[in-house]
Design a protein around this nucleic acid. Structure first.
Length: 298
DNA sequence: ATCCAGGCAGTCA
DNA sequence: TGACTGCATGGA
């Protein structure tokens, strides 16, 4: 059977949030978003005043979903902490109204971002889809719906050969994914325990993994553990910071870290997500415009 | 066809 | 420390 629920929420752009490069498995289908959360098939639709959800089984307790979507977060309270005089951030917030941060499962988040390095978001989605199809447990879906699969367990991927992983299109990232799966499966890396550590200790643990540097570690700290000051710096955010705050000079990693914390404040991670999405969209627009104008890109 | 993507690790100065 | 490079793959 299918259970449905309606959650009242303000300032929540579901589509923007689910497609903003923090989670990779959501698909738009017939006016809603479908995915797998906590091992369950889920369909979400944006409605006036809130979000309608549907899932399989007799569900009384929807906390697994409300927690994932972070429906209890008051976005207005977060935006209030942003620097008031920052016009770049203000533009980003205005352009991306209702953009939220999800609270994802640590293993899926870690594995996904290990697969993300120097990959475009559509590619990451493709790789993860193949990975789930090949190694994920089947998930109950509505009658007649195409089959869906859970994200593969660490203990499953730990036993998969590197060549089989590469067959999913992940290239050199296969080794890092396999090693991470093994460390998690053996308990050498305890992902539950990371939640009890402070931010820098947790980051240290994550960066012990091959293929996990500061950027990927910060993604996991922000998207899975909710450390509000974790600040992933990828190519887009680097561009945003460079042109907006450090015009006409190179910026060093250490310098970025101290600036970010001091400038963006206690919710720097949220600020990062706005800058990321805003600049990514702008960059694509510019490139497209430049190409049609015959200028040859950025 | 060339460039580049939610990077990282190894190497050399 | 800082700069440079190889790594796989596929869309634009």
């Amino acid at each position: 059977m299918i259970s449905t629920a309606f959650f009242e929420v303000e300032d929540y752009d579901l589509g923007l949030t689910l497609s903003s490069g923090q989670a990779f498995r959501w698909r738009w289908a017939d006016g809603g978003w479908e995915g797998v959360v906590a091992g369950r098939w889920v369909r979400l639709e944006s409605k006036a005043g809130g979000i309608r959800a549907a899932s399989i089984g007799q569900i009384q307790d929807w906390r697994w979903l409300t927690h994932y979507l972070q429906l209890g977060v008051q976005l207005g309270e977060i935006l209030k902490t942003f620097p008031h005089e920052d016009e770049h951030l203000r533009s980003a917030v205005k352009a991306c109204q209702g953009l939220r941060l999800l609270r994802q499962e640590p293993w899926e988040c870690l594995a996904s971002f290990i697969l993300s390095s120097t990959k475009q978001i559509v590619h990451i989605q493709q790789i993860i889809e193949r990975l789930c199809l090949r190694f994920g447990a089947p998930v109950k879906v509505p009658a007649g719906h195409f089959p869906m699969y859970a994200f593969p367990l660490a203990k499953t991927l730990a036993l998969v050969g590197e060549q089989e992983l590469r067959a999913c299109g992940m290239g050199f990232r296969a080794r890092a994914l396999r090693e991470a799966a093994q460390r998690v499966a053996t308990g050498e890396l305890d992902l539950e325990k990371l939640a009890t550590l402070d931010e820098s200790r947790a980051r240290e643990r994550l960066m012990n993994l091959r293929g996990v540097g500061p950027k990927i570690a910060n993604c996991v700290l922000l998207f899975a553990y909710g450390f509000p000051q974790a600040f992933p710096v990828d190519v887009w955010v680097r561009r945003a910071l460079g042109t907006a705050y450090f015009p006409r000079r190179r910026l060093k990693q250490r310098e970025v870290e101290s600036f970010v914390r001091q400038h963006f404040g206690p919710q720097a991670g949220y600020a990062q997500q706005y800058l990321f999405h805003y600049w990514r969209l702008q960059g694509r627009g510019k490139r497209k415009a430049a190409l049609t104008a015959g200028e040859g890109g950025l």
